[in-house]
Amino acid sequence: MIDLNADLGEGFGRWSLTDDEALLSVVTSANVACGFHAGDPSTMRRVCSLAAERGVRIGAQVSYRDLAGFGRRAMDVPPDELADEIAYQIGALQVFARAAGSRVSYVKPHGALYNRVVHDNEQAEAVVSGVLRAGAICDGPLPLLGLPGSRLLAVAEGVGLPVVTEAFADRAYTWAGTLVPRRDPEAVVHDPEQVIARAVGIARDATVTAVGGEPVSVQARSLCVHGDTPGAAQLAWRVRGALASAGVRVEAFS
């Protein structure tokens, strides 16, 4: 059994990057951009409404304040400021989730922040603090979605927050089980057949092939297919079909 998630709502104003409606017919969890790396109020409202209609779980995809760089540029944000910005983003999305008759069910960092909190304890603590600050407007502690073995998940578990381990079918891995940095030309897996095979391997065998060719153990409860990949919706359908054929049930994490 595995959850299938995608990054959605990644547009701004007249600019649109993700095929939200098509992807919401496939995924079980939607990581919705909250306005800091992408997303605007109308986009957030629309995606939350569609997700609620289709029974897709809504997650807050929080990031550094970096619209120009799509949240993928390294930034140094003071911990208290970052915690406030995390809480702010969750609160903004919760307004639209509630208006749609749903709620924010989990939090996932995006881009540079996601990679930073794999190793940076201070920034990980700031993200967790932000999630805790938003707890007053959420139905209990929000689970954090992140990389297995990351400081983020360790810090979250230390304060009693639920955690959900995540893997990527379309991202390259190092021998250490971390993601290859985006600046590396091998960071993204573009071949659909390879993405599908990796998805099945992760879900069924808990392994993925690293860039050096060696198998790496990846224990994941949720599998991500990036929404900004060309043809993402069609690829997500193929991934879901392949998982079903391999005896893997696609279901939102509890």
Results as ranks from 00 to 15, higher is better:
104 V>A: 07
106 Y>I: 00
107 V>E: 03
107 V>F: 01
108 K>T: 06
110 H>W: 05
110 H>D: 08
110 H>E: 06
112 A>E: 09
113 L>K: 12
113 L>C: 09
113 L>H: 06
114 Y>V: 07
115 N>L: 11
116 R>S: 12
116 R>N: 12
116 R>G: 10
117 V>Q: 05
118 V>I: 15
119 H>M: 14
122 E>F: 03
123 Q>H: 13
124 A>D: 01
124 A>E: 01
124 A>W: 00
125 E>D: 09
126 A>C: 01
128 V>H: 01
129 S>Y: 01
130 G>H: 01
130 G>V: 02
131 V>M: 00
131 V>N: 00
135 G>T: 04
137 I>D: 08
137 I>K: 05
138 C>S: 10
139 D>W: 04
140 G>Y: 01
140 G>N: 04
142 L>R: 00
143 P>H: 02
143 P>I: 00
143 P>R: 01
145 L>F: 14
145 L>A: 05
145 L>P: 05
145 L>V: 15
146 G>H: 03
147 L>D: 13
147 L>V: 12
148 P>H: 07
148 P>M: 11
149 G>T: 13
149 G>I: 07
151 R>D: 09
151 R>Y: 07
152 L>W: 03
153 L>C: 06
155 V>E: 02
155 V>A: 04
156 A>H: 03
157 E>A: 10
157 E>M: 02
157 E>V: 01
158 G>W: 02
158 G>E: 05
159 V>F: 00
160 G>P: 10
161 L>K: 02
161 L>M: 02
164 V>C: 03
165 T>I: 07
165 T>F: 06
165 T>N: 13
166 E>F: 03
166 E>Q: 04
166 E>T: 04
167 A>G: 12
168 F>P: 12
169 A>P: 05
171 R>I: 08
173 Y>A: 13
174 T>S: 14
175 W>R: 12
177 G>C: 15
178 T>F: 09
178 T>N: 14
180 V>D: 13
181 P>M: 09
183 R>Y: 13
184 D>R: 11
186 E>F: 14
187 A>G: 10
188 V>S: 09
191 D>E: 14
191 D>T: 09
192 P>Q: 14
193 E>S: 15
193 E>C: 10
195 V>S: 14
196 I>Y: 08
196 I>S: 07
199 A>H: 08
199 A>E: 10
199 A>V: 06
200 V>K: 06
200 V>S: 04
200 V>D: 04
201 G>F: 08
203 A>R: 08
203 A>T: 07
203 A>L: 10
205 D>G: 13
209 T>Y: 11
209 T>I: 12
